Simulated assay, not measured.
Amino acid sequence: MSEMILTKTRLFEGVWEGVLTRREEGEFSPDIEVTHQQEPVEGVEVVEKPEEKLWVVRVPVPLEKIADGVQTFVIRDRQSGEVLESFALLAGDVLSYDIRAEMALLREELDLLKRAFRRHCLDTM
């Protein structure tokens, strides 16, 4: 079990933000790395808030990483290699197919329910 806990707070204006806390007290300096397809993401900020005993982690989403499909970003502790959190961006034509397929299934289920309900109403009259 990790001694660090990273909790997402928001994704706003192209920046993923989270709060990093530690289970144990004492001197500590987090060493965080963020990767996308095993490549490091630049511009990651880890800002300490000693009065609150936490760190604010800010991960800018590079524009060149935004593309069709699912883009996954992994946040790790560099020293242990343990994954603390991850987030994914979903976009493009790949999703529209999934949504259209789901809508078609929902329509089919609704039609089935309508037929069964009409049959039920006719049988009870």
Rank of each mutant, 00 (worst) to 15 (best):
L105S: 12
L90R: 08
M1D: 13
I5N: 12
E42K: 14
D111N: 10
L11N: 10
G69L: 10
G43Q: 06
L95H: 10
R10T: 15
M103A: 14
V47A: 12
D93A: 15
I32K: 02
R118T: 09
R119M: 11
K49C: 06
V70N: 10
T7L: 07
T124M: 11
V47G: 00
A88W: 04
I5L: 15
Q79N: 14
E33I: 12
Q71P: 09
H36F: 15
G14Y: 07
V83I: 10
K53H: 10
R78N: 07
S29Q: 11
L113D: 07
A91S: 14
V83H: 03
I32R: 01
V15R: 02
G26K: 05
V34A: 08
S29T: 13
D77I: 01
F28Q: 11
P60K: 01
I66K: 06
V57N: 06
P40G: 01
I32T: 04
G43W: 03
P60D: 06
V74I: 15
R10E: 13
K49L: 06
M1P: 08
C121D: 15
Q37E: 11
H36Y: 15
R119W: 11
Q79M: 08
E42I: 14
I66G: 04
R78A: 14
E108H: 13
V56F: 08
L63C: 02
A88L: 06
D98A: 13
L11K: 11
E48L: 10
P50G: 01
E102W: 09
T21Y: 04
D111S: 11
L105K: 12
L89Q: 09
I66R: 01
L6S: 00
H36T: 05
R107Y: 01
R78G: 07
A91L: 08
I99D: 10
A67D: 13
P40T: 10
A104R: 15
L54D: 09
G18M: 02
S86W: 13
V59T: 04
L113V: 05
E51Y: 10
R107K: 13
V41Y: 08
P50F: 00
R118G: 04
V47Y: 00
H120P: 02
R23W: 13
L105N: 10
Q71Y: 05
W16T: 05
G18A: 03
D31K: 04
V56P: 00
L54M: 14
S96A: 14
L95A: 02
E33N: 00
E17I: 12
L112Q: 14
R23V: 12
I75S: 04
E42V: 08
E102C: 07
I32F: 03
S80H: 01
W16R: 10
E39P: 01
V34K: 07
T7P: 02
F87G: 05
D123M: 05
V83E: 12
V46H: 09
I75L: 00
E45H: 04
E48H: 07
Y97P: 03
L110H: 15
F87H: 02
E64M: 12
R76E: 10
K65G: 04
V94L: 12
